[in-house]
Computed example of a mutant assay.
Amino acid sequence: MHQISNYVYARDELLGMNIPTKRLPNPYQDFPYMVIEGVLSPHECRAITAAALEDKEAVQAELRGRSLDTTIRKTDIHTLSSEHRAVYDRRFEAVRKEIEDFFALSLSTSTDVQVLGYESGSFYVRHSDDASELQDHNGNTVGFRTVAPERKLTTVLFTTSYTPNPTDTDHFSGGELLFNYLCDASGNTITLRPEAGDMVVFFSNPYFSHEVLPVKSGYRLSLVQWHNAHT
């Protein structure tokens, strides 16, 4: 393991890999990612979640424009109403400078917001947001091929909360956000269990490869964007 912030380490196999877009935050920060609490209010979270649950036109998520093998990803994509998009934009602008200061960059263009719904059994296997994994004949990852260089930063805003035993559609069990190559000082893989209203922000490069573990019960909803930036 090699230390990349005060409390987080990266697994050593990354050191020998070809990572063209490698970039890490200031190593003197406690964590190499941000968790910004309360970006959305509880009322806003419930309203956006309710709208997604009522959406009869949700589509199965694709992988960069291609039809998707559901052994890789099982997720529904919803559309934000104009009202909820305006709320999202206001809340994002309120934290923009905090994000830019943390990562020492200036955000430029952004993708549309993906509204991703995970019902029981839904998941997304390990992936990098800006690259595809390169594997040898034994299936071992040996490097990465950049496929979306305009994705410098990823933001994930949750409208439902993790809990071990959900009793309503505002909560879910399972569905943890796991950073595959990041760990603590004891070697435990960094795993986040989000609260409704929280935004998780991280670089889109392979150091921050991640997966969504299978949802066991309840409903997991997140608003995802990818951002280009000047560094």
Rank of each mutant, 00 (worst) to 15 (best):
Y9Q: 05
A10N: 01
A10G: 11
A10R: 00
D12E: 07
L15Y: 13
G16H: 14
I19D: 03
P20M: 05
T21H: 07
K22W: 10
R23W: 15
L24Y: 07
L24P: 04
P25E: 02
N26C: 08
N26R: 04
Q29D: 12
F31C: 05
M34N: 05
V35C: 10
V39L: 09
V39H: 10
L40Q: 00
L40P: 00
H43P: 06
T49P: 00
T49H: 04
T49N: 13
A51E: 15
K56V: 08
V59T: 10
R64C: 09
D69W: 03
T70Q: 08
I72P: 05
R73I: 05
T75F: 01
D76W: 07
I77L: 08
L80A: 13
S81R: 04
A86E: 05
A86C: 02
V87T: 10
D89P: 00
R90S: 11
E93T: 12
A94L: 01
D101V: 07
D101W: 03
D101L: 09
F102M: 01
F102E: 03
F103M: 00
A104Q: 15
L105C: 12
L107A: 09
T109D: 10
T109C: 12
D112A: 09
D112Q: 12
V113W: 04
V115H: 01
G117W: 00
G117E: 01
E119Y: 09
S120N: 06
S120W: 00
Y124A: 03
V125D: 08
H127P: 04
S128M: 02
S128F: 02
A131W: 00
A131Y: 02
A131H: 04
E133Y: 02
L134P: 01
Q135I: 07
N138T: 12
G143I: 02
G143C: 03
P149M: 08
E150N: 13
